[in-house]
Write a protein that binds this DNA or RNA. Structure first.
Length: 814
DNA sequence: AGAGGCAATTTTTTT
DNA sequence: AATTGCCTCT
């Protein structure tokens, strides 16, 4: 975010002022509002700024905000864009009312809820994540009597996903299936899709696919939406897949079968082919490459000047990306001069790597010292301005350990992590059942969690009954008394279970005195009344382990998140609730789609919205620059961000480029683009590390430096081989058989004394209980070594704190 | 019925 | 290394 966006005159009505500070091509991109426009925005070329100004410009020219639709890939990107448009136009004003800035997936979820009938769904449908998909797939495999060993659900699902991305349904796939493998997949696909519909559920692909099909097959729906959204804007267009392409085309009014238009659609797409990194999940680069063919009257504007990075960083990125053969060369330049070179560092192993990154960040944080006059304090880099990128999530662990030991604050960009915890999944499964009683996957998750005497045998009987009668499982449980062969005890348990759920939903009506008045209350009651809370309380008491107490904290946090959602929820802004507009008043001065009759009970609407938002979080959404901490994330999550200081780790063959991507030239080029994306996130300081040995799945292996390091341009980098400082280590450590790396402790860097030894000598070893004069009793979580040793202690009453041992006056409690 | 232990296996990236 | 699934034991 740049200063002049934040400080732009709020409520300014002068469209021309929105061009201030823009370069000529940027202005052109803002001003070219009519007709198809392709903006080829190189990394760091001010893309977001252009999009923001463009939206503001449209509004200030009198275009009604509700007729503008801007699509991004992550919630964070959408939120940021919304915020910046507000900042330029003045928040809360009617000037942005009805403006839609959202992600592809949320747009689709909302459209599918609103046009559920047309799409063949019920509006309370559940969105299944990959875990849910796998469970459902397993059930289908069982029905088809196929072994999961021969048909691993994960890989079956990815084949199905590929088909879906091409908009092939199960029949299309079956029609093309020739051999045994594809024919079997066709059967599974068909069964899986039936099971999804029976559960009134959709997977991530369905969100896009069903929307695309609805738009294609229901002209009345498409016409209505086209009437609303006259201006379409799509960010990161290089990463759209075929379904998204169809959605965009249909919304723009350029889809088959009748592309002939008397006016060219106002569709503006922004992207950079060099930053296409999602081919593996079906993104189709030809969408952006062939935009001009699809929209013959399209204007093309290239933004090539980079305003983000220093010259050496930019030059290295440019040199690297030029190694891609299947690429249209385009300029990438900066008018800046100076700047430090990229530091390429070879380390011994991943722990050494982590230590050197920590050291580097520490130096940056203090401001550089060294020869010459002391640098001004502004040279220091705040923790929040630093980031570490890695190819795979597994690489984060060692870095985390190092940061924790060093006492440097850090966060990991893993927005989905919270919702992947067992206790949260369980609580959400109850919520999903409440919202969508047909949701079989959620039901089987919690039918006997906590245990209530509904074991596998009883559940199977009820499932069989449900299948015979062709009714959902929950209905079968309702009729438990009539199920032949079902034990009386199990039937009683089922009855109680049903009563419990009816208590929350008012029998599905969401009315009545006993039904919760708020979402937070519903979540709280479910956690208590389902028995989840007492289950985890009992576990915590029995094991006294921290992870179990953490579960209770997490459940509390879920209640808070529901409360938060409730506070921010605006029913008028929920397109899924809006009644379809009457055909009479398309020219209504106000947003004809914004407010409509609300037929759904408010609590149910809230719950649907909440579950939707939970299902659609992205890892990148967790990036919070206000946290004052170093951010750790994958290279994929880093797209669209920028940081003054960046460390990219794991520059090794097999890691980056990844082993699985070395089979084809195309995959290798995508890896190179991934590396390019990482480099171009950095504004001033960039370090790239390569470990000579890396432990994968517990086995240390000798590595080969990434070819990308050779492709940066020698003039842009400085190389420092820290691994070589201890030459001879290899010969001794790797002598003999077994290929086990046994580092000789005596040869290790003095700055890093063996941690385990020091920590063990600490008077307060990990796991011990200590007493603090002020904070009371706690358990030692980590201890660092050295003179200024610190310990992280989880206190019973005041939470977790990091203390310097020398001053903390801790007492060991036994 | 349910919990606990052992063995086998491993997706890179994510909406 | 870590997770998941399967199996046995209570």
């Amino acid at each position: 975010m740049t200063l002049d966006d934040l400080h732009a005159v709020p409520g300014s009505t002068d469209p021309d002022s929105l061009l201030d500070g823009l370069t000529a091509p940027q202005r052109e991109a803002v001003l070219c509002t009519e007709g198809p426009l392709l903006v080829l925005a190189a990394a760091g070329s001010g893309k977001t700024r252009v999009i923001t100004r463009r939206i503001a410009y449209l509004v200030s020219c009198g275009v009604p905000p509700w007729s503008i639709l801007a699509l991004t890939f992550t919630n964070k990107a959408a939120g940021e864009m919304r915020e910046r448009v507000h900042a330029v136009l003045g928040e809360g004003s009617a000037r942005t009312r009805g403006l839609t800035v959202t992600t592809f997936h949320s747009l689709c979820a909302r459209l599918l809820r609103r046009y559920a009938d047309a799409a063949g769904l019920k509006p309370e449908f559940t969105i299944y994540d990959s875990g849910d998909q796998a469970s459902l797939c397993k059930k289908v495999l069982e029905q088809l009597q196929l072994a999961t060993s021969n048909w691993p659900p994960r890989s079956v699902l990815s084949t199905i996903s590929e088909a879906k991305n091409k908009l092939w349904d199960a029949d299309d796939y079956a029609a093309r299936a020739g051999d045994f493998f594809t024919k079997t997949i066709a059967k599974i696909y068909s069964g899986y899709q039936k099971a999804l519909r029976a559960a009134n559920a959709v997977d991530f692909d369905d969100l896009l696919v069903l929307t695309a099909k609805t738009l294609r097959d229901k002209p009345e729906v498409t016409a209505e939406l086209r009437r609303r959204w006259q201006y379409l804007l799509i960010d990161e267009y290089q990463d759209t897949n075929h379904a998204q392409f169809v959605i965009a085309s249909m919304l723009a009014g350029n889809g088959s079968p009748q592309p002939a238009q008397d006016h060219a659609p106002n569709i503006c797409v922004v992207g950079d082919p060099d930053q296409a990194i999602y081919a593996w999940r079906g993104a189709d680069i030809t969408n952006i490459l062939e935009f001009e063919e699809h929209y013959p009257r399209a204007r093309v504007i290239a933004l090539g000047e980079n305003f983000r990075s220093t010259a050496p960083i930019l030059s290295a990125a440019d040199t690297l990306i030029k190694h891609n053969k299947h690429r249209k060369d385009k300029p990438l330049f900066t008018s800046r001069t100076g700047g430090e070179k990229i530091e390429v560092i070879y380390t011994r192993d991943e722990r050494h790597e982590a230590d050197l990154v920590v050291d580097w960040f520490r130096e940056l944080h203090m401001g550089r010292t060294g020869a010459g006059p002391a640098r001004p304090e502004t040279d220091a880099v705040a923790w929040r301005d630093m980031a570490i990128f890695y190819r795979t999530n597994a690489l984060s662990r060692v870095m985390e350990d190092a940061f924790r030991a060093a006492g440097i604050p850090y966060t990991i960009a893993r927005g989905t992590a919270f919702y992947e915890r067992e206790e949260i999944k369980n609580a959400l499964a109850y919520l999903r059942i409440v919202a969508n009683p047909a949701d079989e996957v959620s039901l089987s998750r919690i039918a006997n969690t906590p245990t209530r005497g509904l074991g596998d045998a009883s559940l199977e009987k009820m499932e069989a009954f449900a299948a015979r009668q062709g009714i959902p499982m929950l209905e079968a449980m309702r009729l438990a008394d009539e199920i032949p062969g079902l034990a009386g005890r199990a039937a009683g348990s089922a009855r109680k279970f049903i009563q419990m759920i009816d208590g929350w939903t008012g029998g599905g009506e969401f009315m009545g005195a006993q039904v919760p008045a708020s979402l937070a209350e519903l979540v709280e009651r479910i956690i208590k009344e389902s028995g989840l809370e007492s289950m985890y309380k009992a576990q915590a008491a029995a094991s006294k382990s921290e992870s179990d107490e953490e579960r209770l904290d997490n459940l509390d946090e879920l209640i808070s998140s529901a409360r938060q959602f409730e506070l921010e929820y605006d029913p008028a802004g929920d397109p899924a609730l809006a009644a379809a507009p009457g055909p009479g008043d398309p020219a209504s001065a106000d947003d004809p789609f914004g407010a409509g009759e609300i037929a759904t009970p408010p609590l149910l609407a809230l719950l649907r919205g909440y579950l939707e938002s939970v299902s659609l979080v992205a890892d990148a959404d967790a990036v919070d620059p206000t946290q004052g901490a170093v951010t750790l994330m994958t290279l994929h999550a880093a797209k669209g961000l920028e940081f003054p200081a960046v460390a990219i780790i794991g520059l090794e063959e097999g890691c980056l480029p990844h082993a699985r991507a070395r089979e084809s030239e195309a995959q290798l080029e995508e890896e190179r683009r991934l590396c390019f994306v990482g480099i171009t996130r950095s504004m001033r300081h960039l370090m790239m590390t390569s470990a000579r040995y890396r432990t994968n799945r517990g086995i240390p292996e000798r590595t080969i430096p990434s070819r990308f390091l050779e492709e940066l341009g020698q003039g842009n980098i400085t190389i420092s081989d820290q691994a070589d400082v201890l030459s001879g280590l290899e010969d001794t450590a790797w002598a003999g058989e077994g290929r086990r790396y046994v580092p000789d402790e005596s040869q290790l860097d003095e700055r890093r004394p063996p941690r385990a030894a020091k920590a063990a000598n600490s008077p307060f070893p990990v796991g011990s209980t200590v007493r603090h004069p002020q904070f009371g009793e706690g358990i030692v979580v980590t201890v660092s070594a050295g003179l200024d040793a610190r310990a992280t202690i989880k206190f019973k009453t005041v939470g977790t704190k990091t203390l310097v041992l020398e001053y903390a006056r801790l007492q060991r409690v036994r």
